[in-house]
Design a protein around this nucleic acid. Sequence first.
DNA 1: TAATAATGCGTTATCGAACCCCATATATTA
DNA 2: TAATATATGGGGTTCGATAACGCATTATTA
Lengths: 348, 348
Amino acid sequence: MTISEIARLANVSIGTVDRVLHKRGRVAPDTIKKVMTIVDDYGYQPNTFARNLKLNKEYRIGVLLPLLHSEYGYWNLIYDGILKAAKELSPLAVSISVAEFDRSNPDSLLENGDKLMQEEPDAILMAPVLPDASRAFLAKHPQLDYAFIDSPLPDMNPVSSVVQDPFRGGYMAARMMHLLSPQEGTYLIIQTHKTAFNSHERARGFKSYFTGRPGYKRLELEMQTTNGGEIFIEQACREHADIRGIFVVNDAVHRVATFVSLLGRKSQTILIGYDLIDQNRKAMLEGKVDCLISQRPNFQGYTAVYQLYRKEMLGQTPEKTICVPIDIVLPENLTDEESFSTLPNTYT
Amino acid sequence: MTISEIARLANVSIGTVDRVLHKRGRVAPDTIKKVMTIVDDYGYQPNTFARNLKLNKEYRIGVLLPLLHSEYGYWNLIYDGILKAAKELSPLAVSISVAEFDRSNPDSLLENGDKLMQEEPDAILMAPVLPDASRAFLAKHPQLDYAFIDSPLPDMNPVSSVVQDPFRGGYMAARMMHLLSPQEGTYLIIQTHKTAFNSHERARGFKSYFTGRPGYKRLELEMQTTNGGEIFIEQACREHADIRGIFVVNDAVHRVATFVSLLGRKSQTILIGYDLIDQNRKAMLEGKVDCLISQRPNFQGYTAVYQLYRKEMLGQTPEKTICVPIDIVLPENLTDEESFSTLPNTYT
DNA sequence: TAATAATGCGTTATCGAACCCCATATATTA
DNA sequence: TAATATATGGGGTTCGATAACGCATTATTA
């Protein structure tokens, strides 16, 4: 079904059909009805190739993420996925512009968001780790489509949110902790961004697993990037001889792991953390980390880009929420690379 | 960079540029060189929209899979992923044709493959579970692009293979078995297609984990679809009082699980199997299955379709091998739906 | 009533690539 | 030398959607 076929069937010109389809007015009500009937009956879908050829427009996605080169490699994994999608979609006139912000400074989000808007993006892909600033930024551009990754932002209307249930992730981590170190004792929970939704929920999920198991105690600890959080860990280990495991709610687990190994307490301590960043991969291979929960960060970035593209370029309506499965990574299923790249050819 | 820009820069007509690009001859050697220099310098890429609009051709992918409505729901999950990709890509002129074959009958693959070829597909997406017949089929159509899912086919040259390492999967299953049931004893390994590459390798991986752990014994059992494999399980349970766990190398684990529960032996037996088909999901929720390994079947089908599309329509070079991570599914991270199950609701 | 505005609908150029036809220019042969 | 063959390149059309433009016809206002 093409516009000219519709025009022929309706005994009007293609210009009229076009005016009906785009609601540009100047068409008699009867003619509109006649055309729309045919459109509906035949299920007309505009030809994507013709449409985009004529419009001849780049679709630019503005990406707004926390500092990529911070010590939290997680954001780089997300960025990898975004880049991969952008590369695949570049022949389809999709491009990205990137801006970073300092997640410890809400003003930074607004400033860099404004800078990003100067590139005139058609949509925004962002991680709403700073809820208020994120809302404020989006409120300034009410017509803009946007998608969220990493965490949701309630009461907003994104094209799509690609997220993982953090409570469930923490609960899963606790289950693995229990499996890997069944003996009763104390578990240490370490956070770095205590106010962050994901961190908080993961810790809550972890604790929730052990509710009703009185033999297992939990001890919470906050560790800043800047301070020597190591001191507190050492202190906790001294004061609690029965520490069986440490759960770090984000990708910083390798730092804790290295320190625990240094203290010589690795053999009696199970370490569980988040995300397959290189340092965590390495720490796991060295036996310093026992289990990682992955939230498939590259998948998140990759998928969010595709969802925005499908909405805009193909006119499809993406799933409002894409819930990323909670991946359990143990040394036995730790592969060299994530599914986004080629693996050594073991099949010959 | 467009054809006409190249033409302008080279002081020739667009017709000449076109003849150079398509090597259709009738161009002076000097002109060819002049044009190609510009093409290379500016990195000319043909406009996908213009190209496909003009060619106005459907890209049809022929899908050749084992019977979808057999009791092995795994193939349906793969098919779901293929369908999802096909729906997303339908506005980009991609379509699929499906044929099924009986994996117990190699001739059936050839017959249904021939039937599929009558639809004149531009590429084939198949599961080479019958290596010889698959080779024979592909040999009949030497010019055809193809991709493999489920398992690889050595010495072939597919556009892409989307597979999981079955040895490693079996090894992982053993590790989980060991974690969930640490006590020494006997483990039962149940296969249904003993000759199948994946089955065999998974069993081998499982056994390999326990090599060097003399306290753990393995007992292998073959169970056909047709016979009452249950008899053998019952017999094995009678003869071996120390059976701690059962590993089923494919999605049939729910059958075994149901039977073990019926025998009243579930509480002392850990059950591990493959894939998130509905019955297994249900069995896990009911506590009849303890752990599942997922090979992300919908991802496999989905990705393979996209790889073929990217090669043909976008001229991209896909990864030769895409290795699917080994997913561990426990009741705690069993979600209601896979991330691939929800479809855009606009598609008609 | 004349001037002007509003309405309805058809025509046409455009996007970039593909491909065919035809007009020259040059080479070859009778 | 003239006729014919061949090499080379120019130009036009097509794919389908979009939107500007133009031309009637009718409605509204001065």
